[in-house]
Nucleic acid binder design. Structure first.
Length: 469
RNA sequence: GCCCCCAUCGUCUAGCGGCCUAGGACACCACCCUCUCAAGGUGGCGGCACGGGUUCGAAUCCCGUUGGGGGUGCCA
């Protein structure tokens, strides 16, 4: 017999934005599905009506779209499938796999405190034959003996003693199902073949397995628990503590391709060791069983390196259009002074220098702003400490730039004539002009910049700076 | 406390019993290139947590110790 085609799911809960950890989980599911020629489906786990925020669902979808992780079929919303869960719960209740319980969380906690020992539910209502009622929940009757085990693609054999599992809630007192139940029902109903998720969910696996057993769920379910992505303290990434919203990375000027490529290296490595490579190659090489099992630190520095590589690999038109947002959204110059054609001239020079698209405006603001924004540290270093050299160079430039041809090569020759005559390093000679014209001691190549700025404005800025020395 | 998982350079990883004097990448340092900054080039720094086994041979297999993480909700 031929094995069932792979069908995996990404099942976010709309209680927050898509974060880095979720994006990685979605990516690995997607990679596995695409590599296997299988399907990747989406399921919104919104059974907790108190916490779910429907407006976040689209935000999550948009983040997945931005990442380029396309899904098969329409997403399933658990909130719209309550009949399925209720009938599963009735079935479990009917055959004794589950029972009604009237204990409040406080009562459970209080008894545990009196009892001492491990916290958790003590099976108080197990055999009381309670029925539905105000404040009643449904609990799953966990076998007292035996073990529940599974073979994890990434971790190997994992087993739990049933005796260590408490009778957990599968239906809240408000009638909504808990996620273990909905999860087990949906995975069976949707024909899911592999569950690929974070390691933080590994200990709910026996509960889901127990429910599947009791429901006589059809089909095999294979699990793969991904290592967690951790922060610098090696703790699981947290939305509150860490900077992890995918949306924030979009806003900072990261390219989706760079993010996806970087995320793929967290827990997985291509056999040939090449890290930066096109997505189709990653799809081809990806093997779920090759995923590592220890936590991986989310290293923004390395992500930035990847991003710089991807930015440099863009064609110039692609770079220009990718930068658009940062050029028009709250730019550091009066919007009407911006000119695309001018930017396009400078674009290739900027492209090879930025790691983030959000840095782009800072490289071209001197052209579009009426005055250069003077960086104090640069002025101090070059103009003040530079002393006589600065004044001499600016005087030379003011004269030479007035008569030379206005193109980069001529400007370079005109300015560096000073370096030849006075035997001064070219680096020292360009500095005062750069600070006078752009306000900073670093930036795109100077002479191309001057060419774009034009003779009148360049001379005005040079004289202006000279006057202030 | 109890349960589960993990352990190769600072970080991400390659390694799946001899090819390892442990390879690559990021970061860092030096030098080269150079109008600044980047990019690029060359070189450097730096690791198998520890202790027992198994074996002719262990980063690789087994056990233990230590360390770290996750879970322990009427969240997912």
């Amino acid at each position: 017999m031929t094995p069932a085609p792979v069908r995996v799911r990404f099942a976010p809960s709309p209680t927050g934005y898509l974060h880095i950890g979720g994006a990685r989980t979605a990516l690995f599911n997607w990679l596995f599905a695409r590599q296997q020629g299988g399907q990747f489906v989406l399921r919104i786990e919104d059974t907790d009506t108190e916490r779910s925020r429907p407006e976040l669902i689209d935000v999550i979808f948009q983040a997945l779209e931005w990442l380029g992780l396309d899904w098969d079929g329409a997403p399933v919303h658990q909130s719209q499938r309550s009949e399925l869960y209720s009938s599963a719960i009735e079935k479990l209740l009917a055959d004794g796999s589950a029972y009604w319980c009237e204990c409040t969380p406080d009562a459970v906690k209080a008894r545990a405190a009196v009892r001492g020992g491990p916290p958790g539910y003590d099976g108080f209502c197990r055999d009381r034959g309670l029925g539905p009622g105000e404040g009643h929940v449904v609990r799953f009757r966990v076998p007292d003996e035996g073990t529940t085990a599974f073979d994890d693609v990434i971790r190997g054999h994992v087993s739990f003693e049933n005796a260590n599992l408490e009778d957990f809630v599968i239906q809240r007192s408000n009638g909504t199902p808990m996620f273990h139940l909905a999860n087990a029902v949906d995975d069976a109903d949707q024909g899911i073949t592999h569950v690929v998720r974070g390691e933080d969910l590994i200990n709910v696996t026996p509960k889901v397995l127990l429910i599947r057993d009791a429901l006589h769920a059809a089909g095999e379910l294979t699990f793969a628990h991904l290592p967690l992505i951790v922060n610098e303290k090696r703790q699981k990434l947290s939305k509150r503590r860490d900077d992890v919203s995918v949306g924030d990375y979009i806003d900072r000027g990261y390219l989706a391709e760079a993010m996806v490529n970087y995320l793929a290296t967290l827990g997985w490595g291509a056999p040939d060791g090449i890290e930066i490579r096109p997505l189709p190659e990653i799809v081809e090489l990806f093997r779920l069983s090759d995923v590592g099992s220890s936590g991986a630190f989310f290293d923004v520095k390395k992500l930035q390196h990847f991003n710089g590589e991807y930015i440099r690999n863009l064609s110039v038109p692609q770079f220009v259009s990718s930068s658009t947002r940062w050029l028009f959204d709250d730019p550091p110059w009066p919007p009407d002074r911006f000119d695309v054609a001018t930017f396009e001239v400078l674009a290739p020079l900027v492209q090879e220098r930025v790691k983030l698209l959000s840095e782009v405006p800072g490289y071209v603001d001197f052209v579009f702003a009426p005055e250069p924004t003077i960086d104090d540290a640069s002025w101090q270093k070059v103009m003040v400490k530079g002393g006589e050299l600065a004044t001499a160079v600016l005087d030379h430039a003011a004269g030479a730039f007035e008569v030379c041809e206005w193109d980069a090569a001529s400007l370079e020759a005109a300015l560096f004539a000073y370096a030849e005559e006075h035997d001064v390093a070219r680096g020292k000679v360009q500095a005062p002009v750069r600070v006078a014209v752009t306000g900073r001691s670093v930036g795109p190549p100077l002479f191309e910049s001057l060419e774009v700025l034009g003779r009148d404005e360049t001379l005005r800025r040079v004289r202006d700076a000279r006057a202030r020395l």
